[in-house]
Design a protein around this nucleic acid. Structure first.
Lengths: 176, 176
DNA sequence: ACCCATCTATATTGGTCCGATATAGATCGG
DNA sequence: CCGATCTATATCGGACCAATATAGATGGGT
């Protein structure tokens, strides 16, 4: 799912600036499955504008650079729908933490514990965000995605906490 | 975690060609958390060689292009260890499926069902691979990662199957 | 016995995307 | 009142991927 399609999707829910598009995914709990950087969003919006899939209006502000508000066009909606009907690219999950843990036998024990604790904390933060009550009624799509995220992060946190607890046991035994 | 570090990590377990490095992650059940393409692996290996972090020997084969077998050097091991001690980059999980489901209200119902079924099947395949018995004894790192993968995919499949079942109910009711 | 598909193996290229950085006024808590 | 953070847009180098090219080996099917 390229950044162009992501932008079209968000704009299909309402007008937004490039900044707002980024923020939506950073703050709204979907960032665990979709993200994009400014360095890809701004060029994508320019190209979409050239192609007529979105339109821009510059809200001129005094003493501020113009706010460029993007709207999706009819052609844009069709293009977005089209890409939802095509076979979807596969998920891609890259986890430096998991990769590093493959080599835990090479890493000093305190550092392994630190890595685990850091990752557990990050995961718990994300889970807490996903558990926040959402404004009702929630659109069906968001209900599904929130539930999915919760299920995945709960499983992750459970496994990590259990592993961490066993590690603690090991350390205590070693210290005796 | 950049491709250079990934290559160093794999080579720390034993010599390999670029092709074998790619295959290790495609086949061995870790591809759900780490992957890299040929287009990044081969350049990475060249650069690592230039920098003296790995060495190459060309096994000359009759009637075949040379097999370039890479070995990690002492400097390479140190560099790898160093990158495991630095703060790890955050996970990145991009799921076109999850993104598409956010817009399920725009998508014809049969297509939503198809998307779900495809994703469920893919997830079950990956889970089945993770459930395969591994050769014992398993290094601690791999034991952790396999367990982690299993926990995550089991949670995913459970949630997806339940959601799919509810959907089936909806369809039946609608058909009445 | 033969053919086709798949596998092993290396490599390149175009294009996408990210991370860092630059700029600059607004807003807000201490 | 000052520094930190926020809003907002933009660019650039570099990392990375998908597709493609090449070419001999291997193995299953008929």
């Amino acid at each position: 799912m390229d950044v162009r399609t992501i932008c079209l999707g968000i704009l299909s829910r309402g007008d937004a600036t490039g900044y707002e598009i980024k923020k939506l995914f950073d703050d709204d709990g979907y960032q665990h499955f979709v993200e994009a950087s400014f360095g890809s969003i701004y060029p994508a919006l320019s190209r979409l504008t050239q192609e007529g899939l979105v339109s821009v209006r510059s809200e001129i502000q005094e003493k501020r650079p113009d706010r460029k508000v993007y709207s999706i066009t009819e052609a844009g909606r069709k293009a977005f729908l089209g890409s939802l009907l095509k076979p979807l690219p596969e998920d891609r999950h890259r986890s430096p933490f998991v990769f590093a843990m493959l080599f835990s036998h090479l890493i000093p024990h305190p550092r392994v514990v630190e890595m685990l604790d850091t990752y557990i904390e990050q995961s718990e933060t994300k889970l807490a965000q996903l558990m926040e009550p959402k404004p009702q009624p929630l659109p069906e799509g968001e209900r599904f995605v929130t539930g999915f995220g919760r299920a995945v992060y709960i499983a992750m946190v459970n496994y990590l906490r259990q592993y961490r607890a066993e590690l603690k046991g090991d350390a205590a035994e070693a210290a005796e």
